[in-house]
C-alpha cells in the first residue's frame, strides 16, 4: 500500500515538475549573465550565477518607480475594499433597511459588467473630473485624473465581488451577539465595528488578498489612463521592456521576478485564511 502511495507521489511529482518548468526558466534566466542568456542551446542552470540583471533593471529603468506605484495603488485598493466591502456586506446581511434587496441585486449586477464596457466612458469621465489635474469646476482645461493615482484607483476602489463575499460571511454569524449588544445600548454602527468586524478576519484576509493582487496585475485600465513612465505600474513597465526592439531577456526576467515575489508572499502569508474564506463563501453561493 505504501509502495503504491509513493508511486503516486512519483507520478504527481513528474507532472508537477513539467508544469513548473516555465518558472524554472524564469529564475534561471534572471540569474544568468548576458552571454549565457543568449547562448544556444539554453542551459537549465546558470553556469556563472549573477545578480547583474537585477542591478541593471534597478539602476537603469523605471522599475523602482513602478514598484512604488504598484505598492501605493495595491495598498490603497486593499484598504478601500476591506473597508467598503465589510461595511456594505454587513449591512446587506444583517440590517433591515428599505432598499436592501434591490441595492444588493444592483451590486451583483455591477460584478457582471465587463471592464471593456466601462473603459471608454470611464476614460472620458476621468479626463473631465472636476478640480483635478488642472481642471476647473466643469472639468475643462486640464487632464483630470488621467496619469494620476486617483485615476489608477478609480475603478478599483469598490469591487462588487468583495461585497458579495463579505455578505456571505456575515450571513452565517449568529444574531444573539447583536441582540446582546443592543440590550447594552450599543448603536448599530458600534455593533458592526466592535462586535462583528473583529471576528471577520477570514473574509477580511480574503478581500485583502483578492483586491491587492487584482490591483497588482491590473493592465488594461492603467494602459489607458497612464501616459508617462513615472506613473507606470509594474505590468505597464514590464510590457514596455518587452516591447523594446531587441528584448533583453535577462533583465526582463529579473524585473518579472521582482514584480512576482510580493504577490506570492502575500498569497502564502494569507493562504490559510484565504482558502478557508473562499470555502465558506462558496458553500452558500
Amino acid at each position: 500500500m505504501t509502495g503504491r502511495r509513493w508511486l503516486r507521489t512519483a507520478v504527481v511529482g513528474v507532472v508537477t515538475a513539467i508544469v513548473m518548468l516555465p518558472f524554472w526558466w524564469l529564475l534561471s534566466l534572471a540569474f544568468k549573465p548576458a552571454t549565457e542568456v543568449f547562448s544556444y542551446p539554453p542551459k537549465l542552470w546558470p553556469e556563472n550565477f549573477t545578480f547583474e540583471n537585477f542591478a541593471y533593471v534597478w539602476e537603469t529603468t523605471n522599475l523602482p518607480v513602478a514598484l512604488t506605484n504598484s505598492a501605493i495603488v495595491g495598498v490603497l485598493t486593499m484598504l478601500s475594499n476591506v473597508l467598503t466591502a465589510t461595511m456594505a456586506g454587513y449591512a446587506f446581511a444583517r440590517l433591515r433597511f428599505t432598499g436592501n434587496r434591490p441595492l444588493f441585486v444592483a451590486t451583483l449586477g455591477a460584478a457582471m459588467v465587463p471592464a471593456v464596457v466601462q473603459l471608454i466612458p470611464l476614460f472620458l469621465i476621468a479626463q473631465k473630473w472636476p478640480l483635478s489635474g488642472g481642471n476647473d469646476l466643469f472639468g475643462e482645461g486640464g487632464s483630470g485624473l488621467l496619469n494620476s493615482y486617483g485615476g489608477l484607483l478609480l475603478p478599483l476602489l469598490v469591487q462588487p465581488l468583495n461585497v458579495f463575499l463579505a455578505r456571505q460571511f456575515f450571513l452565517d454569524l449568529p444574531e444573539e451577539m447583536a441582540e446582546a449588544a443592543r440590550l447594552d445600548g450599543a448603536s448599530e454602527l458600534r455593533i458592526f465595528w466592535s462586535v462583528y468586524l473583529p471576528i471577520a478576519r477570514p473574509v477580511v484576509a480574503t478581500i485583502a488578498v483578492l483586491s491587492f493582487t487584482g490591483a497588482w496585475e491590473d493592465f488594461l485600465w492603467p494602459l489607458v489612463v497612464v501616459s508617462s513612465p513615472d506613473m507606470q505600474t509594474l505590468p505597464l513597465a514590464l510590457s514596455t521592456y518587452a516591447a523594446s526592439g531587441v528584448v533583453q531577456y535577462g533583465p526582463l526576467m529579473a524585473a518579472t521576478v521582482i514584480a512576482t515575489v510580493p504577490v506570492i508572499a502575500v498569497f502564502l502569508a494569507a493562504q490559510r485564511h484565504f482558502v478557508a474564506g473562499l470555502a465558506s463563501g462558496g458553500v452558500k453561493g
Binding site: 441595492l103 444592483a106 451590486t107 448599530e188
Partner: peptide, 18 residues
C-alpha cells in the same frame, strides 16, 4: 435603517460613478 444606509452608501456611490 440609518446604519444600513450609512454602511452601504460609500460602495453604492462609487459603483454609481464607476
Amino acid at each position: 435603517g440609518v446604519a444600513g444606509w450609512t454602511l452601504v452608501l460609500p460602495s453604492i456611490l462609487v459603483l454609481l460613478v464607476v
